[in-house]
């Protein structure tokens, strides 16, 4: 078990998401940085879909009530377990009574705390992710509070301490500046409803991530991008990554807790391989969009899969070496 001692922002329990409930109006939820969640689970030998704690704002403190292996991935954080510093993307262990103190976040927007065996909240509609709008999943369908007790599954994970290369280093994009993320997008249904000049504005602008950005969506600020004529669509399904342009011309990127449908015109969609980069982009930071063809987007997903495959292979070598000792 884990007891939450201090929590600052809307921390929540997330797995990879709830992907087959759209027909009931239920969105995916799930980790905003799915690569970090998978990596944390790989580090611990967990099922990659095991639930973890997503922490968007520091400080965050908790106590472990038994000996347990854990991993911190995602954003770069300054963290200590029982007073020992933990580097980023690191697997460590706690003894019963140890306090984990995540003090600050130097870059990135969300840290993931995975534990050996996973956070053992009930599966609801096929997932342990928190569905805020529906108030189910995770822990009572709500953000974590001080005093919450999180059940942990039992695990036989080894307690060796080591780290892995963060996805942000292995999968770094060329030309990305500090505090500006470049994300690849595929144009969407209403792209042609915008004049060439408006399209150009969309591509050339460095968009500011406003404070109204969260797990529901990233609201961006920049020059107004307006269609040739107002577009009023019939409501249709949308997925995380869809970039809508409401009438004020300021793009909204739909994220994991987004509505499952909408009617604002869609100019583009962030590709699956880059959605985690948006999830790690900080409020006040910048985003730039790069047009990508569908086949290139699939190749980018292959690169992401290759990174995760290498992690799995590397971890197997560690396990084999460990069992030899």
């Amino acid at each position: 078990m884990i007891e939450i001692l201090s929590v600052t922002g809307p921390a929540s329990i997330q797995d990879l998401g709830r992907f087959d409930q759209y027909r009931f109006g239920v969105g995916t939820s799930g980790a905003m940085d799915d690569v970090a969640l998978r990596a944390g689970n790989i580090l611990l030998g967990n099922d990659e879909n095991a639930a973890a704690v997503e922490i968007p704002i520091m400080p965050f403190r908790l106590r472990f009530d038994r000996n347990i292996a854990f991993a911190l991935t995602g954003a770069a954080v300054e963290a200590e377990i029982a007073g020992r510093a933990i580097p980023p993307w690191w697997r460590s262990y706690a003894r019963a009574g140890d306090i984990l103190n995540i003090k600050a976040m130097s870059h990135g927007a969300r840290s993931y705390l995975a534990v050996g065996g996973g956070i053992d909240v009930p599966m609801v509609l096929g997932s342990r992710s928190t569905q805020f709008r529906g108030e189910f999943g995770g822990l009572h369908g709500r953000p974590l509070q001080v005093g919450d007790i999180l059940p942990c599954a039992t695990s036989t994970a080894a307690i060796g301490e080591f780290g892995i290369e963060p996805a942000g280093i292995t999968l770094a994009r060329p030309n990305a500046a500090a505090d500006e993320s470049i994300v690849r997008v595929i144009v969407a249904g209403e792209y042609d409803a915008f004049e060439a000049t408006a399209q150009e504005l969309f591509w050339s602008s460095s968009w500011t991530i406003t404070p109204q950005s969260n797990r529901y969506g990233y609201r961006l600020q920049g020059p107004a991008v307006k269609p040739k004529a107002p577009v009023e669509k019939r409501s249709h399904g949308i997925v995380p990554g869809v970039i809508q342009i409401p009438p004020n011309g300021q793009p909204i990127i739909q994220m994991r807790d987004a509505q499952t449908s909408g009617g604002y015109p869609k100019i583009a969609t962030v590709i699956g391989a880059d959605l985690w980069r948006v999830g790690q982009a900080r409020l006040g930071g910048k985003l730039r969009f790069e047009q990508t063809a569908y086949t290139d987007a699939l190749a980018a997903e292959d690169d992401m899969s290759a990174y995760l495959d290498r992690l799995r292979t590397n971890m197997r070598l560690v396990e084999e070496a460990g069992t030899c000792r």
């Binding site: 997008v185 595929i186 249709h236 399904g237 990554g241 962030v270 569908y294």
Partner: peptide, 14 residues
Amino acid sequence: PRISLLGTSALLFE
């Protein structure tokens, strides 16, 4: 009908 992509995870048929 109009058919458009929603990134790499879905497709929309109108």
